[in-house]
């Protein structure tokens, strides 16, 4: 029976990326219990699709499944009306408003302030920052996981960084 080797192979190649999977799910769902449910579901999906895995970057393959599972889950479980629909065209103007914090301020930002600012970013920006800064993925890997072009990854990251800085500036302005 081919089941045992498949299970073993799965555990050896996919499960080493479980922390990355949970972390991404945790950042996208913003909740521990939901992240656990989504990660478990994604693992089962990955196991089901594992025969079709063609080789290549395992972490990107697995995180693609985790991300898709997250969005399916968010779509089904979000309270009606609270849909975080984000239109890059409509929302693009607020990038340039307000002063941006300077280096000294950024260097002084504590973990909790950063965590909250990142958590409150719209999903498209949050995920691209998590994949780049927390997972250390290349643009190509991010493009694979999020199914967009390299150019889009580059412009989204640039905007995500600007927005995160503005959010930090606002948060730290309130504190002081």
């Amino acid at each position: 029976m081919p089941e045992t080797p498949k299970r073993e192979r799965f555990e050896q190649t996919v499960l080493p990326h479980l922390d990355a999977a949970y972390s991404l799910a945790r950042w996208l769902t913003r909740n521990d219990q939901d992240a656990q449910d989504v990660t478990q579901e994604a693992c089962l999906r990955a196991f089901r699709f594992f025969d079709g895995y063609q080789g290549g970057n395992m972490r990107a393959w697995f995180l693609t499944i985790v991300r898709n599972t997250c969005y399916t889950w968010l779509h089904q479980n979000r309270a009606p009306g609270s849909d975080e629909v984000f239109d890059e065209g409509i929302h693009s103007t607020d990038d340039s408003g307000g002063p941006s914090p300077e280096i000294q301020a950024l260097a002084g930002a504590d973990r909790e302030t950063l965590r909250r600012a990142l958590e409150e970013l719209p999903e498209v920006f949050r995920e691209v920052l998590v994949l780049r800064e927390l997972e250390g993925m290349s643009y190509k890997e991010i493009a694979d996981v999020t199914s967009v072009s390299l150019g889009t990854v580059m412009s989204r990251l640039a905007r995500a960084r600007t927005r995160l800085r503005l959010a930090l500036g606002a948060a730290m302005g309130k504190e002081s």
Binding site: A21, Q40, L106, R111, R115, L134
Partner: peptide, 22 residues
């Protein structure tokens, strides 16, 4: 500024670890 932001993010190690129960 962007470098400072990156350093702040890296320093804070904001990634989560999968709990044993999961």
């Amino acid at each position: 500024n962007q470098q400072a932001l990156r350093e702040a993010l890296r320093r804070s190690s904001l990634g989560y670890t999968a709990p044993a129960s999961l």
